[in-house]
Design a protein around this nucleic acid. Sequence first.
DNA 1: CTGAAAGCGCTAACAG
DNA 2: CTGTTAGCGCTTTCAG
Lengths: 327, 327
Amino acid sequence: MATIQDVAKHAGVSVATVSRVLNTPSAVAEFTREKVEQAMQELDYSPSLLGRNLRNSESRMLLVLLPKVSNPFYLRIVEGIEETALDYGYNILLCQTHTKLEREKIYFNLLKNQLAAGAITMDPTISQEILSDMARQFPIVQCSEYDRDQNLSYVTIDSELAAYHVTKFLLKQGHRRIGLINVGKQFLYARDREKGYLRALKEFGVEFEEDWCYYADDVSFELGQLAMRSLLNKKKALTAVFAVSDLLAIGALKELNMQGICVPNDMAVAGFDKIDFTNMTHPTLTTVAQPTYKMGCISVDMLVKKIQGNKVEDVILEHELIIREST
Amino acid sequence: MATIQDVAKHAGVSVATVSRVLNTPSAVAEFTREKVEQAMQELDYSPSLLGRNLRNSESRMLLVLLPKVSNPFYLRIVEGIEETALDYGYNILLCQTHTKLEREKIYFNLLKNQLAAGAITMDPTISQEILSDMARQFPIVQCSEYDRDQNLSYVTIDSELAAYHVTKFLLKQGHRRIGLINVGKQFLYARDREKGYLRALKEFGVEFEEDWCYYADDVSFELGQLAMRSLLNKKKALTAVFAVSDLLAIGALKELNMQGICVPNDMAVAGFDKIDFTNMTHPTLTTVAQPTYKMGCISVDMLVKKIQGNKVEDVILEHELIIREST
DNA sequence: CTGAAAGCGCTAACAG
DNA sequence: CTGTTAGCGCTTTCAG
């Protein structure tokens, strides 16, 4: 690979001049510039970002932390992040944490090592202690998750309110025995969505019963099926179920189909996230749309601002209840 | 951020010694080493990879090129890539090409700029000319795609054979009028899968009719629906449909559900890829399993070998016909 | 076992 | 407008 030295020699100028045609072409006489550009062409020269990055002590890389890519919820977010990052001239480093502290540490080290300029984290269980500590030193924004730490910016929706809306909708339809398929309380969104669910029940004077609620260990189709199966075994039959994630809701739907229970007549089902597939299920799934693509874009906007040393405001985006056949 | 200089000063040694405790600790006297390690701790020192990378003129980054992340087919591949890369101490740069030449160029430049050490490309339409050219200079492996260029290694399945198997299976079930939902012929896998489909038909003495075949512009649920709708409008009714991608098959299934056509009794449907959703459809979808996770892992193995200057053999992995309710 | 010094490729004062 | 030079943080001879 040709270096800036080679180009300089070949064009009969100094390296400074070559650097100038790269960075401030207007500061170079046209004749010289053309000479240099030709030399670059002839040598098939590309400036080494290793040299440039060291010199500028910058690196145009953004860390993107998520539990695992196989959860389709993150798809559109990542798409938005990647698109926007490119616009700003940044590239993204995709990092799966598997919600393991050990993994998070490995990846956060990329910030310390100056390989990444900032991070967007979507891991809902990330250690808040470490996160706060990192956020003091490095630009970090949380996407779809949030923490009230002053150094930690976030972009998210109001999960509590959204869950309240879904539940209220089911209540208005006349449902009184509404199950909840949730995940562990270590997830903030799990706590928030449960709160919203309970608030709606209370508002309608429905007394919550413990065994309406099932806590899945993780978010997946299979666990959604399992959850539904368990809920169906309770003494008093439910007439509706709200799952805090589409993956769980789709699994639940599957189980109902398999047991020959008619949705929505015998059981209404609502999900959360509006992943693409929810429009392909049988019946199509009522769910809460999060503006995921936009969330991705905004988190990059925020992060880049932070990297540039600007203050940013947290963002709470609107959600939308998508009513379809399953309710 | 503390630099190696700071640590050296703080520990009262030279930078060379600090570097040694980082890289060849055994070459440093225990007493000195401890002193240095303590200094590192006290200063919360992390070596800058910018400096190290420049010095070593290496960068432990792998480019991963795919059309767009929102196609769930890539999910498990990327998961495998990321996992394996981490094991080798590499990080991955996720790049969406949108099958646009312009994008590919931007990203391939990261190789020229020495920011990435090699690339895994999954873009089926990438310009073979550019790709060959790049492969002459840089380590590149193709994943799930292939080209017979000598510099270009690949890991894939035998698409032609897999399509042949699916079609043969449908024929054995007694189907004689089998539709094909394909994508544009610019995709190699589209050509291969069509070949396999035709070979099976021929083997069973079935004469292919032009209007059994629909070419979608892209791969998505919606276009699968559209395709099915179009196929249903033909004069002579089909009894089975083979879609070259699960996304298309799921869309087709949806359309059949909507029109009240019973699957598999009135129409059998088979897909390709075995994405997770296929087990959640109604009915569950017959499809071809590609060992996607493994493909991801192997492509990294191959790429790292190439980076290290070793020769590698191309790999063709086994596929598996997954027979479920839709046929 | 340790230190001095050179240099990876680039940019940015500073001088001319 | 252009060249000289220092230096970003690190590793690696080469001496000692």
